[in-house]
């Protein structure tokens, strides 16, 4: 059986199978898989006895529930006003230059995906970004390169999925 099917079953056991349990289940799949495949959404619909279109409609509403294949580390850099004023573009260029990908793209080895996001709530320490669930603030091009190197080494060491 597809491991996602098992994951969905155990998430449904944990949270329940009612409509109001849908979001935690979607989040649980994204936490493991980094995105919701069409297969996952259909399986969730089956598990919760919902139309697949409802699951799709809900999932695609939320910007943190990705429905395209994502890398292991999802970089979300804040593009809202204060971060933009405090040098977000230079940081973004440094990331793009180092990873050789544009916004919305994933590195060919599947390690990093690069996205822009709306206000992260760190305007007093701008610019800020999330890598999966970890926050980094007061970014500069130098600092962001160091952070990415740290994640690259993590990957090399073959560490397990981490947030």
């Amino acid at each position: 059986m597809n491991p996602v099917t098992d994951l969905i079953k155990s998430l449904a056991d944990q949270h329940g199978r009612s409509r109001h349990n849908l979001l935690p289940i979607l989040q649980g799949v994204v936490e493991q898989e980094k995105y919701l495949s069409e297969y996952s959404m259909i399986e969730i619909a089956r598990e919760l006895d919902l139309p697949a279109s409802e699951v799709y409609g809900t999932a695609t509403f939320y910007s943190f529930l990705e429905y395209k294949k994502m890398g292991r580390y999802i970089i979300r850099i804040c593009k809202t006003i204060t971060c933009s004023m405090k040098g977000k573009n230079q940081v973004l260029l440094a990331i793009q230059d180092m990873l050789k990908i544009g916004v919305g793209e994933t590195t060919p080895d599947g390690t990093f995906s690069l996205l822009q996001t709306n206000c992260l709530g760190f305007c007093h320490k701008a610019p800020a970004m999330l890598v999966n669930n970890e926050v980094f603030t007061d970014l500069t091009p130098e600092k962001v390169r160091e952070i990415l190197r740290m994640y690259m080494n993590k990957k090399k060491e073959g560490g397990s999925y981490d947030n």
Partner: peptide, 11 residues
């Protein structure tokens, strides 16, 4: 759900 740009007090 503190999302208003420029707000970070609730955290």
């Amino acid at each position: 759900d503190e999302g208003e740009p420029g707000t970070f007090k609730d955290r």
